[in-house]
Amino acid sequence: MAECGRPPELDLHLLECPICLERLQKPKSLSCLHCFCQECLGTYITKELPGKMASATSFPCPVCMRVTSPVNPVESKDKWAEHFPTNAVIKDLIQLKERSSGPLYCKPCQTKGNMTNPARFWCKKMDETFCEACKIQLHDNIHSDCDILDISGCGGVRPNQEKSAPRCDQHDEKKVWYCEDHQLLGCNICIFKNHRRCDEVTTATEYFQKLKDESRLEDMQDMLKKNTEVIDLIVKDFDEQLQNLVQNQEVALQSITDLRQKVDKRLNTLQKDVTDKLIASFKEEKINMEASLRQCERLMNSMLNTMKSSVTAVERNDHIETIVLYQRGQAEVESCKALITEMRKVVHVRQH
């Protein structure tokens, strides 16, 4: 059995909410595949969206800004978040992580006296962890229909990978097909009912190989890396502008205080009005810049995570996860380009 030299740990960034940066609670997935706490997503929809966007019938993803429509548009906005699908895989991994305070070891090996052999797989149905050898020799011979999760941090190849394919929400069948026309993964029933007339329908394995052969995965990872570097520069620029803004505010307020000491009591009312407007202006500008900064940081962190996860998925030969991460990476690259263009416009306006 292949060893990686240490007990495997879960990819913790996959279990964190991009908004609160804490462990995901009731993880909800949007159509762009980004996942958030139900409460964080609900707060974002009802309170954080600015101006006209707050009254719209759709909203942008907090990370990649792709426009997302609610599952049930007739529901009030404070109910939108709870109707998005729960990410079952993330939920299962969180459940496993919360029950395990330390490294995960193979249960069958422990019964044989080997107490520290790292586990690479978790069977939710049996609620047991296995190393690669015990999974093949013990688990797969008896529980061939289990959805078993790869919890390894070693980046190895998952044996019997087709048994771990996610199931279709509508038909409870394994997703083994990919429609390039609609950019969707589907089960046999989905393909037969909805994609019979599509021109480009292949198995997930074939599409995975196509992505590798055409270097599209490498191109996506390269674009994620380059755009992450650009976003990092924007974040640093925002930090500098925020510092200057605070300094300018202090200077401006001190000037107002000095002026107040020089003017007659008859100007007190006028002075107070000017001060309030100035503070409100700085406050509004600071809020806008901090909001833009948070957006940049979310997108940057998500692109780093997508890039890391896609590299790991390719190393593991994980077809489904690779395709999903490829789609997510494409959305993030496009959102990053749009965000950079928008930020440049804002900087240009401020300079003039």
Rank of each mutant, 00 (worst) to 15 (best):
E16K: 15
G113C: 07
K226N: 14
T111F: 14
K107N: 15
K262L: 08
P27V: 02
T116K: 15
C179W: 01
N305A: 15
T46S: 02
G155K: 01
S335M: 07
G329M: 01
D318A: 03
C134D: 08
P60V: 04
C4G: 08
Q330V: 10
C32R: 02
E98A: 13
Q110S: 14
G42R: 01
V230E: 09
T341W: 14
S69V: 12
E214S: 15
L138E: 11
L299P: 00
Q249Y: 03
T341A: 15
L270W: 09
Q209L: 06
N288A: 07
L299V: 00
F84H: 02
T202N: 13
D169F: 12
A331N: 14
L270I: 12
F192K: 11
A119W: 03
A331I: 14
P166S: 04
K125G: 08
L49C: 02
V74E: 13
N317T: 00
E334A: 14
G155V: 02
F130P: 05
L278V: 01
T68R: 06
R316M: 01
K28D: 02
L96E: 03
Q247M: 09
E285L: 06
P73R: 06
P18H: 06
E206K: 11
E334D: 15
A204G: 12
R216M: 14
K163E: 01
A54N: 11
E9I: 08
K97Y: 12
C123E: 04
M220N: 10
Q254M: 04
H83P: 00
C198V: 06
S255Y: 02
